[in-house]
């Protein structure tokens, strides 16, 4: 039995005339990496601001480790680390001093703090520039410091609001790896992003919201399977392909569509019908040889498109 870390019931938040969060409920288990997915203005940051105690909710129940949120807010905050969407660090303090200051604000004592700061610097890969000012940092380094400031007190829950926006692939991979490590060390992670690949590879559970409402939620793999309607194969053959081949392929159970582009076959088939084996059989029987096979699976982007009729990044 897994332990419930955070439980949210019927969360509601309205700004002047925008409903930012509308009846959102979810449950996060200890050591989950929980993905919060949604297009611009979906209400991700608002939801996060509420559960990190920055803004008040209009309605809704929140329990952290089964405890009343409002009554235990002080302790809850000390056990949480929020990495905000914007980079919020002190430009006139060095990387190390930023960590020290945040550490002291989180109330960790001097001795632990020194140790934690050094470890955190190491962890976010900024040991070499510990005594440099953030204004000399690249975007990725600033992002990492932004994360460092939220984990220097070793929180049990780490909330990251689009921590990889606007940085290069290398920094991004570093951040993703760090999050996995933190998770392995026991932290529960809440992660929002626009980058589907990130969420897909990182999160074991996810919640998709749009216009403040929950659209879908569940285990990432189960969701992928549930919406994994079709797979597409791109098969390159050794010679120019005749129409006859497509006719034969179309008769295989599960194959939905077949088209030809010179030497390349594009075949759309229902997922999990073991059609690939039959397709390859037919190709061999008709005296073609295949040089390469590419398979494109449905991803969260497609699921989102399927559910809301729009893409995530527009």
């Amino acid at each position: 039995m897994s332990i419930t870390m955070l439980e949210v019931q019927g969360l509601h938040k309205k700004y002047q005339n925008t409903v930012a969060v509308d009846d959102v409920s979810f449950k996060i288990d200890k050591q989950d990496i929980f993905g919060l997915l949604g297009p611009n203005g979906a209400g991700k940051s608002t939801t996060i601001s509420i559960i990190s105690g920055i803004i008040h909710r209009d309605k809704g129940e929140i329990l952290v480790e089964g405890k009343n949120f409002d009554k235990n807010l002080k302790d809850i905050k000390r056990n949480m680390g929020l990495v905000p969407q914007d980079i919020i660090i002190f430009e006139d303090l060095t990387a190390k001093e930023n960590l020290e200051y945040f550490g002291s604000l989180y109330g960790i004592n001097n001795k632990t703090r020194k140790h934690n700061v050094d470890q955190t610097l190491e962890f976010i890969g900024l040991t070499d520039v510990a005594n440099k000012f953030p204004k000399t940092f690249s975007g990725g380094m600033k992002r990492r410091l932004n994360i460092g400031c939220a984990i220097v007190h070793r929180p049990q829950i780490i909330i990251l609001d689009e921590p990889t926006v606007g940085i290069d692939a290398q920094s991004r991979n570093h951040i993703m790896e760090s999050i996995r490590k933190l998770n392995q060390q026991g932290a529960t992670i809440i992660y929002t992003s626009h980058y589907m690949e990130e969420i897909q590879s990182l999160c074991n559970r996810l919640l998709i919201i749009d216009k403040g409402k929950v659209v879908e939620s569940g285990n990432t793999n189960e969701l992928l399977l549930k919406y994994n309607l079709n797979e597409t194969y791109l098969i390159m053959l050794d010679k120019k392909i005749q129409n006859e081949l497509c006719k034969q392929l179309n008769e295989i159970i599960g194959v939905v569509k077949c088209s030809i582009n010179e030497k390349v076959l594009e075949i759309e088939a229902q997922a999990n019908t073991f059609s690939l084996k039959h397709i390859l059989d037919v190709i061999e029987r008709t005296n073609y040889k295949f040089l390469s096979i590419n398979m494109k699976r449905n991803n969260l982007e497609d699921i989102f498109l399927h559910l809301t009729g729009k893409t995530l990044r527009d």
Binding site: S49, L73, K74, L82, I88, F102
Partner: peptide
């Protein structure tokens, strides 16, 4: 603004700050 929000995620009591 944002800095205040960041600090509010750390502590309930801004008075000492």
């Amino acid at each position: 603004g944002r800095k205040q929000e960041r600090l509010l995620s750390v502590t309930n009591r801004l008075l000492p700050i």
